[in-house]
Design a protein around this nucleic acid. Structure first.
Lengths: 235, 235
DNA sequence: CCAAAAGTGTTATATATACACCCATGA
DNA sequence: TCATGGGTGTATATATAACACTTTTGG
């Protein structure tokens, strides 16, 4: 406290938007709070930054506690800083955006935090400005998924092109032409044929692909065009 | 301080990346600090969030103090929160990204803050993690300018297509084909011919355009493709 | 053999690129 | 009249969008 005596110290929270995909719907991992304040209401998973903890480490800690997962896809999204956003005390919240492979999560940890996977449409009212955070995250998901290959983060290690298509259709709530979608995805060179077929299917079995990790990393920041041009006008 | 007794309160700073364009080079507005800490060294313009001030209002205040401008293009970029980033005390810094029309700024205010416009190439060493912030902002400028019509924010109200092209060439450090660039920009429908010509030119006078504000606002979030496809692989 | 989902091919259209010529201006 | 920079046109390549048929599978 030597150099900046008069400035206000503020609580710095971290809130996490955690997206998953069950093959049909985009889901959010939300917490029904069994602790104060706002006990009994729904919120995003969050916490405060520890004294000597980097922001990104704080986010990783909170995500690990809830899901049991490390090395998941996380981006810092935006910091919410309205003076009035938390009625109890001035708090700034850094929102992180996470995509996880829904089958990988530790369901015991989720249960013990009183958390649930809830579809976007069915999401309950949330505390504070958490609804705005979710809206912002959905916009970001649509924006980013149209340009960068982040969809894979929501699917299992091995996935089929029809699965990928259902994911994109869920993200944008539109039907996509199978043939054009397939050609576009395969032309990125990011997909490797595993030589196996999806055994769950009741009809013709789809080819299982995996991501070419090297190409994915090398080309992640390039722009792609995963969506039909007609979609690109929605932010 | 009722509800969260044990959490750490942290200083929340705001730092502003302020870009300008002088017709030739992209410039940053940087401050040579005549105050402690790190007096005599260069930094971004910044300050702390006030007790009852929204984050975005804090950024607007800091930008107004330095430039005398309101209603400029500002985006929240990223929050830097390494525990060690400020050696004096734990501080989190929310970085804002601003684009201004360089001729509009209040040069008296800039002088009184000991600030200067410095080209990106000539920028001095900066304090703390400010260099990382600048690098991040440059990436963001390139990314965003390729997809959204933010270039106009760096040019005067009335501008010519060759001016716009020089701006894009400065942003990406590449030469662009005049004819294709012109056609691409005009085809967006965002440019309105003012009927006037640039009088400064020593040769043929270029047409002065202004931005169609309504279309700009309506279509801001659409994706465009302002750069040749060959450029789109650089993030 | 039938329904359901997967896989593949073709064609028309739109867009991007590469490139060359003419025009206006002031020195 | 010449050098400099502004404005426009076109042919080619590439990418996209729209669309139909065949294959595999389990029941």
């Amino acid at each position: 406290m030597t150099n900046y005596p008069q400035a206000t110290r503020i609580l710095v929270a971290i809130d996490c938007i955690i997206f998953g995909f069950d093959g049909k719907d985009i889901k959010l991992l939300l917490v029904k709070r069994n602790f104060e304040p706002e006990k009994g209401k729904w919120s995003l998973m969050g916490g405060f930054v520890n004294k000597d903890e980097d922001l990104s480490d704080g986010a990783a800690r909170i995500l690990y506690n809830l899901t049991g997962l490390k090395n998941i896809y996380v981006e810092q999204l935006e910091t919410f800083g309205k003076a009035s956003r938390d009625p109890a005390e001035r708090t700034v919240s850094v929102v992180f955006f996470a995509l996880i492979k829904i089958d990988d999560h530790d369901s015991e940890a989720v249960r013990s935090h009183n958390a649930s996977w809830i579809t976007l449409e069915a999401r309950p009212q949330l505390i504070f400005d958490h609804e705005q955070m979710v809206v912002r995250a959905c916009e970001h998901l649509r924006y980013k998924a149209a340009l960068h290959p982040i969809g894979f983060e929501l699917l299992p290690e091995r996935f089929t092109i029809p699965q990928l298509q259902k994911l994109y259709e869920a993200i944008y709530s539109i039907p996509i032409d199978r043939r054009n979608f397939s050609r576009k995805l395969l032309s990125t060179g990011l997909l490797i044929d595993t030589g196996h077929k999806n055994t769950n299917s009741a009809t013709k079995k789809a080819t299982l692909y995996r991501l070419d990790e090297d190409k994915y990393k090398a080309k992640f920041h390039s722009f792609w065009n995963f969506m039909p041009d007609s979609m690109r006008s929605n932010e």
